[in-house]
């Protein structure tokens, strides 16, 4: 792989806090190596801003290996940037060329208010999980792990849904700012396993109710969420969730 250096123009959303107005600020960054990650490019810029006595750009990040789900930049109009199935932290500067202008925005959704610059408040996702995204089993109640054989295909499909990292890119990409892909990934993860069966109906009803309460929109199946999901969670999970939702709505005892 040939390495190269590049000069870039960055247009970054700056907003001092939740209640203030934001605006774009333009930065020229020089001698960026194609081997850097996108966030390392921001590190370089921030070091410069600090040395110049300016406020560095705040952004969420932690593991920097694409699994914690903290990083969340809307890069040139696409959540997590141009690469398929990639988080912002795994995006590398090879994706860009000398002279490019890059527009970086935070996730935009009523359910994700901006805290500062590119950092948003995603606690709404925690509250959706609290509404029922679990199996109610107290510690110590379990039977032997192999007492319950599970069809491999189902276990695999459940895993594929459970691979969601809760980053919120689906919401960011959706024209309706719907959290359906996130919610359905959890619903499908648990609904595909026999362990999740007893709470299946209540889970889907209360998680969707909570999603609505948090100010997320509804799904109109444009497929944008699936296209940008760094973990390639399938939009068919949403159909599955709808099926469960309809069935639960019609057949609950209450």
């Amino acid at each position: 792989m040939e390495h190269y250096n590049m000069n870039l123009t960055l247009k970054v959303w700056r907003q001092p806090n939740k209640n203030s107005e934001g605006r774009f600020e333009t930065f020229d960054v020089k001698d960026i190596s194609s081997e850097m990650s996108f966030l390392e490019m921001f590190d370089v810029l921030n070091e410069r801003l600090i040395s110049e006595g300016n406020d560095p750009i705040a952004f969420d990040h932690d593991c920097r290996e694409g699994i914690c789900g903290a990083c969340s930049m809307h890069i040139n109009g696409r959540p997590h940037g141009p690469w398929h199935a990639t988080t912002t932290c795994q995006l590398h500067m090879r994706a860009f060329k000398d002279g490019d202008t890059i527009v970086v925005e935070p996730w935009r959704a009523n359910g994700f208010p901006v805290i500062k610059d590119l950092v948003t408040d995603r606690t709404s996702f925690d509250r959706i999980i609290q509404a029922g995204g679990y199996i109610s089993v107290n510690t110590g109640n379990a039977v032997d792990g192999n007492a319950l054989p599970i069809e491999k295909d189902k276990a695999d499909a459940s895993f594929a849904a459970a691979a969601c990292i809760g980053c919120g890119a689906c919401v960011a990409a959706c024209k309706n700012a719907s959290a359906s892909l996130f919610v359905s990934a959890k619903v499908a993860h648990l609904a595909l396993l026999p362990q999740g069966e007893p709470e299946r109906k209540n889970r889907v009803l209360s998680m969707i109710a909570q999603m609505d309460n948090e100010g997320f929109g509804s799904c109109t199946f444009t497929g944008a969420c699936e296209a940008v999901c760094p973990k390639e969670i399938s939009v068919t999970n949403i159909s599955r969730m709808h099926k469960d939702y309809l069935w639960a709505g019609l057949s609950t005892e209450k």
């Binding site: 679990y134 199996i135 192999n146 054989p149 491999k152 276990a155 695999d156 459940s158 895993f159 396993l193």
Partner: peptide, 23 residues
Amino acid sequence: SGNIIDQCVAQGVPFAREYGGLL
């Protein structure tokens, strides 16, 4: 250590499985 696996399976952790459905 064994209890941990049991507990996690009960919580719905999708461990890799063989075709027979076992872990």
